[in-house]
């Protein structure tokens, strides 16, 4: 089924009446995603884009049997929206909203512990299993069904990696954006675990960047018992100005930790094929799959 989402995934949208949410819900419907409803407090009982609207997530879930929720709620209330979805035991929550206060996200992490929910994001472009399910804001034209799994922290760089694997004639099984914020839901390791047992994925591409420790933790994990598939990676920011906060909240190099060189070394040490330049992603993927 690829990972996390497939043709059967039933999706609701929190904040569905907003301009962005409406735009992407329409696109998701035309893509073939099974959109089954939306949530907007105070507008329960009405319909929007042909879908039923509910006052809260619990009601939406009870009525539609939703197993995923995509959140477009403005950052002021986004954390509460995630917590509401966790309380309603939605299995997969995808939060597109960016610039959520960090301490709000720590509160969300506290609620996630021991819950039935997996969170993607915030500040994620979403997730796509080509020809089956599209949740979020990624441009659909660049995708093609194939056997490469992609996990990425950055939005625009995800598109570049997708486009290159499409251009190389490979295509994707599932492409997951874990988001660029320092405090977030699923990470590289969680997604690697899912791809490990996915029959439709033959190669995993990690698109990382400076700052944080996602890449180091992935390297630790991949150094353990043999991972069943080849893994490759590109880490953005080798030549970014040091000690500087880049656009993503978590892309900060501090006092020698979180720098590109250390991440690459750790991943190479774990048997990952690391390309130094983003323009080599497509060719390296083709090369690894040909072996």
């Amino acid at each position: 089924m690829a990972i996390l989402v497939d043709r059967e995934t039933r999706v609701i949208c929190q904040g569905i009446t907003g301009a962005q949410a409406s735009f992407y819900t329409e696109r998701a419907i035309s893509f073939g995603t099974r959109m089954v409803g939306g949530v907007r407090p105070g507008k329960g009982g009405s319909r929007h884009l042909g879908l039923p609207v509910y006052d809260d997530v619990a009601a939406a879930k009870a009525d539609t049997g939703a197993d995923a929720s995509v959140i477009f709620v403005p950052r002021e209330n986004a954390a509460d929206a995630i917590i509401e979805a966790i309380a309603a035991e939605i299995p997969l929550v995808i939060c597109i909203t960016e610039h959520i206060p960090v301490l709000d996200m720590i509160r969300v992490r506290e609620c996630l512990a021991g819950s039935a929910t997996r969170l993607l994001g915030p500040n994620t472009p979403g997730i796509i299993t080509p020809e089956a399910c599209r949740i979020g804001i990624m441009p659909r034209e660049i995708f093609r069904r194939g056997r490469v799994g992609i996990i990425s922290r950055s939005s625009t760089l995800t598109y570049e990696a997708v486009w290159q694997t499409t251009d190389a004639g490979l295509g994707q099984s599932t492409c997951v954006g874990i988001g660029g914020d320092p405090i977030h839901g699923l990470g590289f390791v969680d997604c690697l675990e899912l791809f490990a047992t996915d029959a439709e994925t033959d190669l995993v591409v990690l698109v990382g960047e400076i700052g944080g420790s996602e890449e180091e933790r992935a390297a630790d994990y991949l150094s353990g018992p043999a991972y069943p598939k080849p893994v490759m990676a590109y880490i953005a920011g080798e030549h970014a100005p040091a000690e500087t906060r880049m656009g993503h909240a978590s892309a900060i190099i501090q006092a020698g930790s979180g720098a590109a060189a250390g991440k690459k070394r750790a991943l190479r040490g774990a048997g990952v094929r690391v390309v130094d330049s983003p323009v080599d992603i497509g060719a390296a993927a083709r090369d690894l799959l040909a072996r």
């Binding site: 570049e160 400076i210 953005a236 920011g237 030549h239 656009g247 130094d276 323009v279």
Partner: peptide
């Protein structure tokens, strides 16, 4: 000039390369 931090950093990496 780029849009998005990830692609911005990737563009710098490519230029230097």
């Amino acid at each position: 000039m780029t849009v998005g931090a990830g692609l911005s950093m990737a563009t710098l990496d490519t230029l230097v390369q």
